[in-house]
Design a protein around this nucleic acid. Sequence first.
DNA 1: AATCTATCGTTTGTTGAACAACCTATCTTC
DNA 2: GAAGATAGGTTGTTCAACAAACGATAGATT
Lengths: 174, 174
Amino acid sequence: MSASDPCELPADRKRGSNFGWSLGMVLRNWHERVEELLKDLPHGSRGYHILAVVVHEEVPTQAALAARLAIDRSVLTYVIDDLANAGLIERRPDPQDRRARRVVATERGRQTLAEAERRVAHAEDHVLGGLPEEQREVFRDLAARAAEAIHAAAPATDPCVAVRSVLPPTDQSG
Amino acid sequence: MSASDPCELPADRKRGSNFGWSLGMVLRNWHERVEELLKDLPHGSRGYHILAVVVHEEVPTQAALAARLAIDRSVLTYVIDDLANAGLIERRPDPQDRRARRVVATERGRQTLAEAERRVAHAEDHVLGGLPEEQREVFRDLAARAAEAIHAAAPATDPCVAVRSVLPPTDQSG
DNA sequence: AATCTATCGTTTGTTGAACAACCTATCTTC
DNA sequence: GAAGATAGGTTGTTCAACAAACGATAGATT
């Protein structure tokens, strides 16, 4: 109850400027929970994302996988290694292109993913516990749509955002 | 082999399972844009968050700052160093506690933040460009509320989430 | 007052992810 | 079959997160 009480300034001032912080907060919490839940899955949430795409989509190659998840190729290498070692997916030579590998899920991989998805869905409800239930879905949906749009327009650098200095001109007069 | 068709499970299942990915996507884009915009600000978005709290709130100490932003104390040290070197904030000895430092913004810091906030707000509209304008605010608001709730309940590890193995029992028969 | 413990801020070391650069094998084109 | 492009893999650098230890100081105990 001291003078340092945060409520002393208008709430919307604080609100407006911390969208990035809010996102980070939510994502971090999601990440913590999911990492905890998916300890057994190689590379935790990372492996989960990859496994999910492998199971749910017919992925042509590793390169396509990387593009779809917007992650670096070099990451895929070792995650897929470990996922494969765990018997969840397999790397099969592509008969049409001997450079390429087709990554396919094993039955065990499918089961594992199904279980993981159940848990993650549950965890997500906790992550969004601060929101009434109906708004959670709204939030997920908005996030998904915003993300899709960003992913569709890959080059994130937009020339219409002018880049000068944020700093005000140095006041040399003093 | 159409059995592996991704549509074999309800579409919302797929949606539901990449909430983390979506969040990551949006946050990454936010981060990229803001880093670009705030190149001149020491430590980019990090410095921005800290400066924002310093300017907008009467922050008792560095420790309080760390708690408010949910970041590690050790991060604050060097970011504040550089923010101070840039003349945006000052570290003043707390007269009541000589261990503590009061971090206050300079006039230049206030101006810089104001400009930075303008830019960030603009960038955020681009980040959420995939959403119709009215929904952007909904999204921000939901994110803010979810984040606040998470922040309020700091211990992210929730005992109600049982932690067993995601992996199905090893099938030794084949 | 002497001392013990907790706290503030700083420093250091470890870990893990992101990313770039380079390598090998293969495909495609000429 | 040589040249360049592409798939995948390896290595090394950079950076943020985090834990742990440290010096200085405050507050409590004796």
